[in-house]
Each structure stands twice: as structure tokens, then as C-alpha cells.
């Protein structure tokens, strides 16, 4: 390895056998990350992958980087400590919908609102895989699983809406069937300063096969995925015949021919008001209708760890470097002779 940080995909692959089920969407996400990293100016020793519990949480074992497979739901908390301790580290958090939205929902929203420097990859497969097939906080109402034989009555989270509600500064969605799109989104998430939240629609071919195929299969993509591109009108369809307009009642899909090109919403991911991004996140209730992908929001806000570090520097300038002897004598003292 040279100082130029030139690496190959092989440099990022650990010696551990990957043990996801054959055909799992996790493989393609792992490949996208391992293919992207050689393109970035990063060194393996500065990369840290932190996970909680679940199938996705095995991810760190397969990366030739530093890593911790922590406990269920707590990865953003552990990662926060690492990001605070050393700003030179590139901290990535990996977890599934159960890990990050159910047991760990609290840590996720607080990492996002603090805007602490890390990339958060949410593998959303709308099911509990490791515990063999119970419904998850993103499963649709009516989902029949081992724990809901008569159908789930739980209303699901929309992870993008949730992240926007937590005032996340970078919010994006991609899916496991499009490596190029994943790599591009991951690249942008990595370059963001602050917490970057990426929802990845990921197929669990054992317990929830085809959950996203209506929108992510090659033949359906052009008509069912709505690409969000900064500064461009939001359009989709084989012939870009569909578009999105923002009205009083929110975002809605229209035929471009009906409204005219000029009426289409032009995507502005830098809009400091998250309202329109939120409307876009509500375009689809489930992956059975046209669904936006890409970067919903990308704004700048002071990063937490840097702000905390800044206070240390300020304190040293104001109080001088820490002097233990002086601290011990900082309250009223008296002498006994």
C-alpha cells in the first residue's frame, strides 16, 4: 500500500467466508462498497465499519478494515463514540430495518439530528431474516409471517420520511439491483460531512423474495423508479412521459403531456426546508407503485464531532492546557501544618 492510497477491490476483502444465503441482496451491496472504495482516496486502516445485529450486521466481518459487530440496534451509538474520538476515521454503519428502525430507532434518529460524521447504510428488506421471518417495522400492513399468521396490523415506517423528520442532512435511496446507482449514492454519502443516511431496498430471497421486484427488476425500472437528480425536472417512464408536480396537496404523478414540461417539479436537494423532500418521500406508500430513488436531501449543517472538538480547542485557548495540580487546588483550600 502506498501513501497514494491506491487499492484494489481485493484489498478490501477480508479472509472470512461470506455466509449470507446464496442469492441474498447483501452480496451485491458488499460488492458495490468493495468496488467503490478503490475509487476513493481512502486507506483501509482509516475505515471502520460498525454494525448491530441481523443478517446485514455481519458486513464488517467481510471488510478488510477495522470493525465492530456490536449489539442489536446500538451501532450508531458505538459509531458516534468512534467518530468523536478520531476525526480521521471514516465511519460506516451498516444495519437492517429491524436493527435500525425497531430496536435501534432511537439511536438512528439521534445520530441523524446530531449530524455526526458517518455513513449509515440501512438494508431494508422489510422482514426479519436472522430470526427466520417475522414482520419488520417496514413490512406492509397485512403481511403474513410466522409471528403474524393472520396478517400484520402494524403500520410501517417510511425510512426516508423518518430520516427527513429527524432533520438528516443527507438522505438517499438506492437498491441492490443497480450496482452503478448504489456506487454513485455511496460515493456521495461518503463525501458528505455529517450523517449520511442511505436506504437500500434489499431483497431477502428466503423470507421476503421479490418484495421490490415490481419496481427494481430491469423491465420495470423505467416505469416504476423515479430518479431524483439535482437541478433537473423529475421525470420517469420509458419515454419520460411521466413526471412529478408539487401542489397544495403534496407531490403527485402526472402525464407530462397533460401539464407541460415547465410545470414539472425541478429537484433541489439543497433546499433547506425539508418539506418538499418529505412530499417526494410520500409519493409511494409501498414498493408497488412508482417510487423515487436518488438523493432526496443534501444540505449542510455543523457536524457534531467537529463542533465538540472545537469546544475543546476553545477551552484550551481560554483556560490553558489542563493542569491537574491546578484543578485539585481550584476550590477553597487551607493548610494544616
Amino acid at each position: 500500500m502506498t501513501d497514494q492510497a491506491t487499492t484494489t477491490r481485493q484489498d478490501w476483502i477480508s479472509d472470512q467466508e461470506v455466509r449470507w444465503c446464496p442469492g441474498c441482496g447483501d452480496y451485491s451491496i458488499l460488492a458495490a462498497v468493495q468496488l467503490l472504495l478503490p475509487e476513493l482516496d481512502v486507506k483501509p486502516e482509516n475505515m471502520v465499519f460498525i454494525s448491530g445485529i441481523g443478517c446485514a450486521a455481519r458486513f464488517p466481518y467481510y471488510m478488510e478494515t477495522y470493525g465492530m459487530h456490536s449489539i442489536h440496534g446500538r451501532a450508531p451509538a458505538v459509531a458516534s463514540g468512534i467518530a468523536m474520538a478520531n476525526p480521521d476515521l471514516d465511519v460506516w454503519v451498516v444495519g437492517g430495518d429491524g436493527d435500525m428502525l425497531s430496536i435501534g430507532g432511537n439511536h438512528l434518529i439521534h445520530a441523524l439530528r446530531r449530524n455526526i460524521n458517518m455513513v449509515i447504510l440501512l438494508f431494508n428488506n422489510q422482514i426479519y431474516g436472522l430470526t427466520k421471518g417475522q414482520y419488520s417495522p417496514t413490512s406492509e400492513v397485512g403481511k403474513v409471517t410466522k409471528s403474524t399468521p393472520f396478517g400484520s396490523v402494524d403500520h410501517p415506517f417510511n425510512p426516508i420520511s423518518l430520516a427527513l423528520g429527524a432533520d438528516a442532512t443527507f438522505v438517499a435511496r438506492t437498491h441492490d439491483m443497480d450496482r452503478k446507482h448504489m456506487m454513485e449514492i455511496f460515493r456521495r454519502a461518503h463525501s458528505h460531512t455529517g450523517a449520511a443516511f442511505v436506504e437500500i431496498y434489499q431483497n431477502c430471497n428466503v423470507f421476503n423474495d421479490g418484495a421490490f421486484s415490481e419496481i427494481t427488476s430491469k423491465q420495470n425500472r423505467s416505469s416504476m423508479l423515479i430518479p431524483l437528480e439535482h437541478g433537473k425536472p423529475v421525470r420517469f417512464g420509458d419515454k419520460l412521459e411521466k413526471g412529478v408536480v408539487i401542489g397544495d396537496e403534496g407531490a403527485r404523478i402526472v402525464d407530462v403531456a397533460d401539464v407541460g414540461e415547465d410545470a414539472l417539479h425541478v429537484h433541489d436537494e439543497g433546499n433547506t426546508n425539508p418539506g418538499i423532500a418529505f412530499m417526494l418521500s410520500r409519493l409511494a406508500d409501498s414498493p408497488h407503485e412508482p417510487t423515487p430513488i436518488g438523493v432526496f436531501r443534501h444540505v449542510h449543517r455543523p457536524e457534531y464531532a467537529e463542533a465538540a472538538r472545537h469546544q475543546l480547542v476553545e477551552a484550551q485557548e481560554r483556560q490553558g492546557p489542563g493542569d491537574l495540580q491546578a484543578l485539585l487546588h481550584s476550590r477553597p483550600t487551607w493548610e494544616v501544618t
Partner: peptide
């Protein structure tokens, strides 16, 4: 939980 999680993360990172 986040309190101890962050402290453990910091320890992993050498603090």
C-alpha cells in the same frame, strides 16, 4: 445505552 455505547466506541478508537 447510547452513553455506554459511545464510551465503548471511543475505547475501540483508543480513548
Amino acid at each position: 445505552i447510547a452513553g455506554i455505547g459511545a464510551a465503548l466506541g471511543a475505547s475501540f478508537a483508543g480513548q
